[in-house]
Design a protein around this nucleic acid. Sequence first.
DNA 1: CGAATTTGACCTGCGC
DNA 2: GCGCAGGTCAAATTCG
Length: 326
Amino acid sequence: MEEIMMDELEIHWLGGLEDELSMEELLRGCDVPTTARLQGRSDPQSGASHGKALVNELASKVYSGPTIGDLEGALYLSCRNGEIISGSTALYVGVALPQKGAGIGNMENKYTLRVKAFGNGPADDGYKWRKYGQKSIKNSPNPRSYYRCTNPKCNAKKQVERSGEDPETLVITYEGLHLHYTYSHFLLSQTHGFSAAEFHATKKPKTQSTDLHPKVPEALELWQMVRGPEVGEEQQQKSFKAGEKQQNGEIIHTSAMVKEGIQEWLIIDAYTSQGLLEDVVPLMVRKPCGSITSSDEPSQSSQPSYPSLSSFVFWPSTGSGCESVT
DNA sequence: CGAATTTGACCTGCGC
DNA sequence: GCGCAGGTCAAATTCG
């Protein structure tokens, strides 16, 4: 699928933000400490240039690897092996992008998902949405619902309607980008008994190792949270270094990563914690065996089902499908 | 009582 | 310019 052009991406993001909101301002709306968002940067800049630098950094890091095609392929790989469906309410069906244009900047940050909903509706996608309208659509038996991200500085929207061909299939059109954390990320910290701020305060000083990807320390921490202290840091670093070598210095290369399993997943999560990859493929899609929601309507924004440790789900390279690490 | 949802009205873009 | 269809607004209503 398309490769994402970094310059186009940055321009589009900045251009799409009303009042020229900086990334920092958007992120601030999530009550997450700045240090939680900025990783691997030892010499923070200030002012507007800092915000732009941050956009540059995030865009270059996040979109240097995963494309929707990568993820789609990986998800199909995971789903088709037949292990992930049990207990799930939503099955990823497909991602459709506008045909026109190659880069994200040409497609107005808009894409459509088709999600198979089993009775209770789709899983929560990790964001909190507020419904602001519903409209009957011509030649469609089902109304279309309009949702907006509840973050006041986020202009992400989505439209949800049931497929006329298959009422069990929800057609979800996402528009715009979330430039903030998902709620599942917050719970990740909270469920470990401390706030996000405390979580990051407990971090060891980052060593700017030259032979590790800047995200590796964070991924290692996530790994340690998942696996506990029995996994030695030295062993972990060996694993990550090996992965890095495999990727020829470019760790983020999603189709391979998902197949490789937990190490790569952790790196994905390190990026998705920035709330950016999720704009391309929401949590529900990245985590097709996700939480069960109970409403017949697609949004449960008033009572979002934030699965505890929902981010800690990964797709093993072989065999047993999704696994929740709690 | 505050927040979220519902729903009719209004706005906007597009084709004729 | 007109009508249609999709998208958004906002007051009323519902919910927790």
